[in-house]
Simulated scan of single mutants.
Amino acid sequence: MPSYESPLLALPGAVAAEGQDAGVAAHYGDLFREQRALARGEGFVDLSHRAVVTVSGADRLSWLHLLLTQHVAELAPGHATEALILSAKGHIEHALYLVDDGATTWLHTEPGAAEALTGYLESMKFFYRVEVADRSGEFAVVYLPAGSIATAPAGTVVRETPYGRDLFLPRGDLSAFAGEHGPAAGALAYEALRVEAHRPRLGRETDHRTIPHELGWLDSAVHLQKGCYRGQETVARVQNLGRPPRRLVFLHLDGSEVAIPEHGDPVRLAADGPEGRALGFVTTAVRHHELGPVALALVKRNVPADAALLAGTVPAAQETVVEP
């Protein structure tokens, strides 16, 4: 849906997001209020710009098991998981958020990724009894925060995780759902809580050469004892050697600065100053309601874990996410 625009942009105070989250609201007039509401388990986030794909058929789980980094051959109905699709060299191509309802595997992924994802899946069907469908035009993803007592509409497929619930809601029901389950929170509030939780996102914490080890995705999206899948050789080699070339870090940014870094801004040693050699890049920087300005960044493995850094031109103290 390249020109998608959510109907919830008509809600009072809605300000449209840009970039990767274009099509939904960045916020509804009060970023910190929206974050605090989510942290209390209140409200919802419109993620209706995300791509929705389903896989049905008798062989769906055993077939997906051959393609994904995650063990899904015996995925129980209602059990949520994450998985990646890698290139032959082990670089991350797709990040998938899955749940199976007993007859169909539902997944959502990044906005605009459905065509490439379904194209790859279709090319791998061979003789397996599976049907792949882009359902982005029919279903919208809505996020309910952890602790929410909101009830999903009857018949809704729900993906429940420690971070909250993802609802695969019929698109025609989106406005009615918003009217019953407010207040709405924007994508910026959702991103702030994601950064706080050190959770990577494809297209933000990744580039064309990112491997799962660099982001800590081994814990949630990779099963190290499962059978062969594309890119597994790289996963096994790096796991056995223990030397991923880069690592994800969490940055506490200097709150006295007016601006926060942009995605892609270089990360340098503070001792080298703003003209020093770039040792990584800022992936996502946000303003958090309690922590102040914080960010995730991808830096070279050998950057000292206690080194003071510059994120763009902003002084930053790092907190380890992936061990050096």
Rank of each mutant, 00 (worst) to 15 (best):
S6P: 04
A10T: 14
L11Q: 15
G23N: 02
V24A: 04
A25G: 05
H27C: 08
F32C: 03
Q35A: 07
Q35D: 11
E42P: 02
V45K: 05
V53F: 02
L67G: 08
L67Y: 04
L67H: 14
L68P: 01
L68K: 00
H71P: 05
V72Y: 01
L75C: 05
A88S: 12
I92V: 15
L117E: 13
T118L: 02
M124V: 10
F127S: 13
Y128D: 15
S136L: 03
E138W: 08
V142I: 14
L144C: 04
P145C: 07
P145A: 05
A150V: 11
T161E: 14
P162T: 11
G164P: 04
L167M: 08
L169K: 06
L169W: 01
G172M: 06
L174N: 10
A178Q: 07
G179H: 04
A184S: 12
E191A: 13
E196I: 04
H198A: 08
R199V: 11
P200W: 10
D207E: 10
D219Y: 08
D219T: 08
H223F: 13
L224A: 11
G227Q: 05
Y229I: 12
E233L: 10
T234Q: 07
V238S: 02
N240S: 14
R243Y: 07
P245W: 00
R246C: 07
L248Q: 14
V249S: 07
F250W: 14
L251T: 02
L251C: 08
E257V: 09
E257W: 13
P261T: 09
G264V: 03
G264F: 00
A270C: 09
A271R: 08
G273S: 05
G273H: 00
G273T: 10
A278C: 06
F281W: 07
P293K: 11
R301A: 15
P315H: 03
V322P: 05
E323A: 15
P324Q: 13
